[in-house]
């Protein structure tokens, strides 16, 4: 292929295409098509970047998820936000937080014109989950959003789950209460670790999606489900510093208007990035089953 004949799209076996598109910024993505003709009544899966990892996802999670969705008859698209992975930085002066939503909207516009779909399911891990919820709230084309380890807040029960086992340990209590066991070096180490942890809380700009306030998140969820959009929440054991029991989300937000639209799954034995094959397979099975439910649900698009 010479530069002159280079097009923005080239197909590959069996059904993946490299796409370059975008109006306000050049974006690069991979479209994975089902082996049968695309049913434009069914939604298209769009997978968002997890932090600054490129569009293949951690351990190629996004590649595998896109292929599994296509096997179930759903087209899937995974792309890099401007400035992430293979997409060059944006030049339109928008903030990162705004730019992400523009990139998602332009991706939907492109896919509408390219393959004729008009409904979308978003999926994302970590900051990708937060960005999925932000987009789902504001864009009525989103009929489902799969949120893996999104920003979440602790509940009183979280603290009980976290600290009670420590308090129940006689050995640990004796150790804590016995002054003769106090070791200055241990205290020094503890302080150093605490200091390190606090400095690690500093997150690069790409991780700051602008969605951190508990009540703001509640508003996002409520407005999203009010218009009939389905939400899949998946929390891993790798997120146990924030989420440590299956029903924590329901305890956190007990007054949502349509809780039946929220599918909640807890993966306590799984790491944050689904590193093992078994963990990825289980997640992909759960998600593709849920995609089917969303695809079959009555259209709930509202302006």
């Amino acid at each position: 292929m010479t530069p002159e004949t280079q097009t923005a799209e080239c197909s590959t076996s069996p059904d993946e295409r490299a796409i370059q598109y975008g109006f306000s910024s050049d974006l690069n993505g991979i479209l994975t098509l089902p082996s049968v003709k695309v049913d434009t009544d069914r939604p298209c899966l769009v997978i968002l970047n997890a932090g600054i990892l490129h569009k293949a996802g951690p351990s190629r999670l996004h590649v595998r998820l896109a292929r599994a969705a296509a096997m179930r008859g759903l087209p899937a698209f995974r792309f890099d936000f401007a400035g992430v992975g293979d997409s060059p930085p944006r030049k339109d002066g928008r903030t990162l937080s705004d730019g992400v939503l523009v990139d998602i909207a332009e991706t939907f516009d492109f896919l509408e014109s390219k393959i004729g779909v008009s409904r979308f399911i978003l999926a994302g891990l970590c900051s990708g989950a937060d960005n999925s919820l932000r987009a789902a709230r504001g864009d009525s084309r989103v009929v489902g959003a799969a949120l893996l380890d999104p920003t979440v807040h602790r509940t009183p029960k979280w603290y009980l789950n976290h600290y009670l086992p420590r308090l129940r340990s006689r050995e640990r209590m004796n150790h804590l209460l016995s002054l003769e066991n106090v070791n200055p070096k241990q205290i020094q180490d503890l302080l150093r670790r605490s200091f390190k942890r606090s400095s690690e809380k500093e997150r690069p700009e790409l991780f700051r999606t602008g969605l951190s306030d508990k009540y703001d998140i509640a508003r996002h969820i409520e407005e999203t489900i009010q218009r009939g959009c389905h939400l899949f929440y998946g929390f891993t054991g790798g997120w146990s510093n924030y989420y440590n029991y299956p029903g924590q989300l329901r305890d956190l937000y007990p007054n949502l208007s349509r809780p039946a639209l929220i599918h909640l799954t807890h993966y306590p034995e799984t790491g944050h990035t689904f590193q093992t094959t078994e963990d990825r397979n289980r997640l992909i099975q759960d998600l593709t089953d849920w995609f089917e439910l969303v695809a079959l649900a009555p259209k709930a698009r509202q302006s």
Binding site: S13, E16, R17, A18
Partner: peptide, 20 residues
């Protein structure tokens, strides 16, 4: 930066060409 796939079917490789 131009993305494309190259190579034989079933062994397609994703590439990105950066022209000078």
């Amino acid at each position: 930066m131009n993305p494309f796939f190259m190579g034989p079917e079933r062994k397609r490789l994703y590439g990105l060409y950066h022209p000078p």
